[in-house]
Simulated assay, not measured.
Amino acid sequence: MEGGEEMKEKNTLPPGFRFHPSDEELITYYLINKISDANFTGRAIGDVDLNKCEPWDLPGKAKMGEKEWYFFSLRDRKYPTGVRTNRATNTGYWKTTGKDREIYNNNTSELVGFKKTLRKSSKRR
């Protein structure tokens, strides 16, 4: 998206607009729609390849937000036929921290997903 298009998109939002979806809303609305509809675009959520992106580059790739940003990112496989996730980047890797947190649907109490916290680690020399 070109800079001018991005500014137009930001300017169409009402003054004072804040994007603070719950974890459940991120999964049950944004992620489900992104998976099921190739044309779906979350106005506040950008597409980023986290394996080609350093943490300090993320604010510039965000569609909005100052301290919190939201992105769609495809999960890369470490091996073509395996299930392990590749989290390597050019200067290090994304490391999981803490335990995965379960996300439930507030209406049905059904488990809808997990939240994983990642932090950037440098490659060992």
Rank of each mutant, 00 (worst) to 15 (best):
M1T: 13
M1N: 06
M1S: 15
E2M: 08
G3T: 13
G4M: 04
G4V: 07
E6I: 12
E6P: 09
M7S: 11
K8R: 14
K8H: 10
N11P: 01
P14I: 14
G16A: 06
G16R: 06
F19D: 00
H20Y: 11
P21L: 00
P21E: 03
P21I: 00
S22Q: 09
S22F: 03
S22P: 02
D23K: 06
D23A: 03
E24L: 01
L26F: 03
Y29Q: 07
N33Y: 09
N33F: 08
I35S: 02
D37P: 02
D37G: 00
D37Q: 06
N39T: 14
F40P: 03
F40Q: 05
F40T: 01
T41M: 11
T41H: 05
R43K: 15
I45T: 03
I45K: 02
G46F: 12
D49P: 00
D49I: 05
D49G: 01
N51C: 15
C53R: 01
C53V: 09
E54P: 06
P55V: 12
W56I: 15
W56R: 10
D57C: 09
L58Y: 07
L58W: 10
P59M: 07
G60Y: 07
K61I: 05
K61A: 11
K63T: 00
M64I: 10
M64W: 00
M64N: 01
G65T: 09
E66G: 07
K67F: 08
K67T: 10
K67P: 00
E68T: 15
W69V: 02
W69S: 00
F71W: 13
F71P: 07
F71N: 09
F72P: 14
F72N: 14
F72R: 11
F72D: 11
S73L: 15
D76S: 13
R77E: 00
K78H: 11
Y79H: 11
Y79R: 13
P80M: 13
T81R: 08
T81V: 06
R84A: 05
R84W: 05
T85F: 04
T85D: 08
R87E: 01
A88Y: 05
A88E: 13
T89M: 07
N90H: 12
N90A: 14
T91N: 14
Y93S: 08
Y93E: 08
W94I: 02
K95W: 00
T96R: 02
G98F: 10
G98L: 13
D100V: 08
D100W: 05
R101A: 10
I103E: 01
N105Y: 13
N105A: 15
N105K: 08
N106H: 10
N106Y: 08
N106V: 02
N107F: 02
N107S: 07
S109E: 11
S109R: 12
E110K: 12
L111C: 07
L111K: 02
L111W: 03
V112N: 01
G113R: 09
F114Q: 03
F114R: 02
T117M: 02
T117C: 00
T117H: 01
L118T: 08
R119Q: 13
R119Y: 08
S121N: 06
S121K: 12
S122A: 14
S122M: 06
R125Y: 12
R125M: 13
